[in-house]
């Protein structure tokens, strides 16, 4: 019985991301594991440590650089790894990404739980988990903040989903696709031993042909242009006055003039 956790690499969250010559650039900032995916990896490893999951496989789709995110997941405790990589996947939208990941989950076989981050910090689409779940025909529980219980033998799970108005508590049968939010756990730092093991681990590479990806599934969404946000106009106006009370009153006047109250 296997658990799959999906991850992608993104520019470090502190990177200065800008548009250069029409392309996205983050200078020499490092690529790191998508921050949301650390929570998914942690939860997968916890399942193995405490809930009787046997194997945790990390799956990433991308290029050579994706291996860094995959190695981070291995160093946190995943057992094995797959990199889905093929030039035909360049510029893939979520239709294609979800098709490739779905085929990888099916090829791995015997998967009871596939874990995803809530979103990627570059594309911010929050779609890949839902669309993989739909393609697999599995129950899909997004925005999971707590796994109350999971019983692999009985094939059941109970979770709390964080939605706009509060927490929805849901029971489901396995297999299931889950996406997680930050509240779910506290991701561990990879240990020295973990990092050493990860650096030696073999990362299996699968192409579109290896996965028998349905060639009629094509990207439909395109991004013809990226651009920077318009620069913020003007400087901050610091309100100064003899007393805090006067400064507060003046600030209130300004905000009323701005018509935001």
């Amino acid at each position: 019985m296997r658990i799959v956790v999906c991850t992608k690499e993104v520019p470090d969250t502190a990177a200065k991301v800008e548009v250069k010559d029409g392309k996205v650039s983050w200078g020499d900032a490092p690529l790191v594991i998508n921050p949301w995916d650390e929570y998914a990896v942690e939860e997968a490893v916890l399942m193995k440590e405490n809930k009787g999951a046997e194997t945790v496989t990390v799956v990433g789709m991308g290029t050579e650089t994706t291996k860094d995110a995959i190695k981070h997941a291995l160093a946190m405790g995943c057992d094995d790894a797959v990199l889905i990589t093929d030039p035909v996947f360049a510029g893939a939208d979520t239709l294609v990404t979800s098709e490739a990941i779905t085929k990888a989950v099916q090829k791995l076989g015997d998967v009871s739980l596939a874990l995803f981050g809530r979103e990627t910090s570059d594309g911010n689409s929050s779609q890949v988990a839902v669309q993989v779940g739909r393609r697999l025909g599995w129950n899909t529980l997004t925005y999971v903040a707590t796994i109350d219980s999971i019983d692999f033998a009985a094939g059941t799970i109970k979770v709390e989903r964080l939605v706009e108005e509060g927490k929805q508590i849901v029971e489901s049968t396995l297999p299931v696709v889950i996406s997680v939010v930050k509240e779910i756990n506290e991701p561990r730092y990879p240990s020295f031993m973990g990092i050493r093991k990860a650096s030696k681990a073999e990362i299996v590479e699968w192409s579109a042909a290896d996965l028998a990806v349905d060639s009629s599934v094509k990207s439909k969404v395109s991004w013809p242009e990226v651009y920077g946000l318009p620069a913020r106009e003007g400087d901050v106006e610091i309100i100064e006055a003899a007393t805090v009370k006067e400064a507060a009153a003046e600030l209130v006047d300004r905000l009323i003039e701005e018509k935001v109250i």
Binding site: V24, G123, N124, K220, S222, P224, Y227, L229
Partner: peptide, 18 residues
């Protein structure tokens, strides 16, 4: 659409929906 956690914007479209 904002991308890269609102650091950039992208024009996004579905040119050929079929």
């Amino acid at each position: 659409c904002p991308i890269y956690s609102s650091k950039l914007m992208a024009k996004v479209l579905i040119p050929d929906a079929g």
